[in-house]
Structures are given as C-alpha cells and as structure tokens.
Design a binder for these strands. Structure first.
Lengths: 221, 221
DNA sequence: CATAAAGATTAGTCTTGCCTAAATCTTTTA
DNA sequence: TAAAAGATTTAGGCAAGACTAATCTTTATG
C-alpha cells in the first residue's frame, strides 16, 4: 500500500494523453497505476483543485499548463538521469530505467542542471526518448514505426518504446538500439501474425514489437 | 506537513544515541525532527512493533540491530553520495549535504555499490565523517576536539561536525577542512568566552565552533 | 432506439501520521 | 520528602489516500 505521488499521477496522465492530447479516462489511469477506480476519481478531483489537471466527471482528465510543467520536469529528470548513469557508472540501457524511476523525484533542479551540463546538453536519452529542456521544450523528429516498413527498406532505429530489461537486452543483442541500421529483408504473415525478417534472415520481430521501434528510412550505403 | 520517513527517524535515533548508546528521549527526537511530542511517542511505538527500536515508555529508545542496520544504510548512502557529487559534478563541500539528504532514500543498494567502487572505496566523506561499509563496519580514528588543544600545538583537521553551508564556506576559507594543518597560536578568554587564535593571528574561532572540529596532533615540520 | 454492459462516481471505512488538550509519570528543588 | 516543574503518554481529532459496495452515466448492441 505505498501511496502514489502527485508527480507519478501527472506523469501517467501525460503519457496516456499522448500527442493527440485526448482526455485520459479513469480506467486507463487505474490500470496504469494499478489502483482502484474510486481512488483515481478522488485523486483527479484533488489534482483539479490544485489546478494541475482539467477534469470533467465521466469524461476524463487533461493536464493543465501547470500540470504539464510538473510532468515534464519529472520526465526530464528521469531521462537525464538515465544518460548520466550510463555515461558515468557504466549502466546498460536495460538497467537505467528502474533506477531513474526512483531518483527522478528526489533530485533538485540544480543537480539536474549540472548533470545536463556535464553531459553536454543531450537531446535524447539511451532509448531515443527526447529530453525536455528546463523550460519544457521537446525535440521532435519525423519517425515511423518499424511495423509499417516494407520489404527492401533500410532504416535507422531512432527510438525504442519498451523499457522491459529482458526485451531491451534482446533488442540490443540483435542491433535494434538507437543508431542501429537495419535492412528489412521480408515482411510475412503466418497464422494471422505478422513478422519482419531483418538483416541475417534468422533475426525476426513480431509486428507488436516492431510497432515499438521508431525508425527513419536511410539511403543504401 | 510533509510526513517523516522511518529512515529519518532511525537516522535521528542513531545520531542522538551517540557512541555511548544512551537511550534517546522523546523530547530530543521531537526537537531534532521538529515534530510534536505525542507524534514521536506514537512513532516510537510503531518502530518498536516493527522491531527497529527498543522502546521503554518514559525512558526513551535505542536502535535494535535491525534498526541500526537500516540507519547505517542511509548514512552510508548519504556519505557516498556526497563524495560522488564532489568528484563527478564539482560540488563543493557546503553544497553536498542538502542534495544527499534527499537522494539517500532513493538510491538502490546496487547504485550505491557502483558509486563506491567508482570512487575506490573511500573511507571518509568530504567532512571527514566515516563511511560505513555495506555490512555496517565503521572506521574509527583517534581524534580530539580542537577546543581542547593548547597554545603551540600543531594539528591536522580530520573531521568537521557542522553542515551549515555558511559555516562550511567560512571554515574552508580559513583552511579548516579535513587534511588542513593548523598551528594553535594562543588560547584566550575574553568576557567569559574562549577563543583560539590560529595560524595568522587574525584567524580565530570560538570554543563552540572549535568543539566541532576534530583534530589529531602532528609533529612540527 | 431500448436496454444491457461497461465505465465512473458516491458513500462509507480503514490506516497512517500528524496535531492539541488533558492526564500521568518522573525528576528536581525547596 | 513533598510539592512544583518538566517530560511523557493518553485521549480524541483531522486529513490524505487507499479500499469495497452501491449507484449513476455513457456506450454499445440487438
């Protein structure tokens, strides 16, 4: 029964409302945070009272400007901590997420600013996720999911949307990390499932996994 | 009304019970934590129920072995974080305390172990406080407070027991930091107050400040 | 378009950690 | 050695944040 911080609620709303900024439903939050529906309703009311969320009963919630700022601050902390742990303590990209998840709430703004400076103001973290600047700006890139690639394409991995350590270790082993170059050998269906065969033909990924790999097309060498 | 963590209660008990391991009174804890007396009573009961503290009503509390382990873990985290911030991010010794105070509860054991290794297993932090090992061992040193030094003595500062940034900046300016060598020019009383004159005669410290400087005598050059 | 299913809120509890006021215990002092 | 002073605990409350059960609203479906 550990209590969930305001920051984590806001982070969840941010991620769930997505680029389209659709109202986040109570149910979605409850599942994401593994908490009961009434608890979410109650907290959304509090957050609305504090001006962090725009909440309409039965409709769901959106971040206000203040809420968005607070969410972005935590996300920025998280991503800079990830880069920092990899650079200074040789963490691997599958280990950093869990640690950053705990530290993101404890670091001060000035510590994060120093980390950012020491790292040379990186724009992306080890998973390719953009790092918001101190004043809330986020770099945009034109990417597509690997799952829409067609046979014969050559792409570069820009971003990986999964944080599961086992999955990340697998992806790293087959070269599917930010910066990795991939040749899409064939796209095939089997038993209702779609697969992509990559590079050596013994490397393949399911459609659902490919949907989490954001890539850009590159010219052949 | 931010709530005080169990770890901070245990840390407070550890510091207040001191080397002599005297029972810590409710009042001492209440003042140290800036909290009401009944709140402390209640929390000591909970901690006793959890086996972290040996509590006798009206008598005060002592850490149990489990409580001591938990307190030492947090203190170890704190001190290693301090060294780490100075070494990798150019923090000064007056800045690290506040930051470490927040991070000490959030770091994982494996992160701290990596930090310790990266730093080469330091035995003392920037203030000269000993860093407990992962299994709870603490280095001891034979030191005396500067306040008992006599005129003509040459001493080396080993440890500074104050964490106030302003005080630390002053001490650093006059060379009173761990490793610093000091010649005690004269010890004089004025208006009931005792002073020590050090090195150049325009540097002096009050007895109460000198009591917080732990030193060892050294041979003259 | 009516109604059932799914989703959300309200009502009512529980626990935790804090508080103040009152009662009680311990220590100090006269 | 007893009264006063000081420290501590007990009693009783409050707010936050979680839960379950019951009720209401929205969405989906026949």
């Amino acid at each position: 029964m550990p209590t969930i911080s305001v920051e984590n609620y806001l982070k969840a709303v941010f991620h769930l409302q997505g680029e389209a900024e659709e109202r986040v439903k109570t149910k979605a939050l409850a599942e994401h945070l593994d908490i009961s529906l009434p608890s979410v309703t109650g907290m959304l009311k509090s957050l609305a009272d504090e001006g962090l969320v725009d909440y309409l009963p039965y409709r769901g919630a959106l971040l206000t400007e203040a809420g968005r700022r607070m969410a972005l601050r935590v996300i920025r902390n998280h991503r800079l901590i990830e880069v920092f742990l990899m650079k200074t303590l040789d963490y691997s990209w599958d280990e950093v997420h869990a640690e950053a998840e705990r530290l993101e709430h404890a670091v001060s703004d000035t510590l994060v600013a120093r980390i950012e400076q020491a790292l040379g103001f990186p724009k992306f973290d080890p998973h390719g996720d953009p790092i918001p600047s101190a004043d809330g700006e986020i770099s945009r890139r034109d990417v597509m999911p690997l799952s829409v690639a067609t046979a014969g394409m050559r792409v570069r991995v820009e971003r990986v949307l999964d944080q599961t350590p086992e999955v990340l270790r697998y992806l790293d082993r087959i070269g599917l990390r930010p910066g990795g170059l991939v040749y899409v050998r064939e796209v095939l269906s089997f038993d209702g499932q779609m697969f992509l065969t990559l590079n050596d033909e013994d490397v393949s990924v399911s459609e659902s996994l490919a949907a989490k790999m954001l890539v850009t097309e590159v010219e052949p060498p």
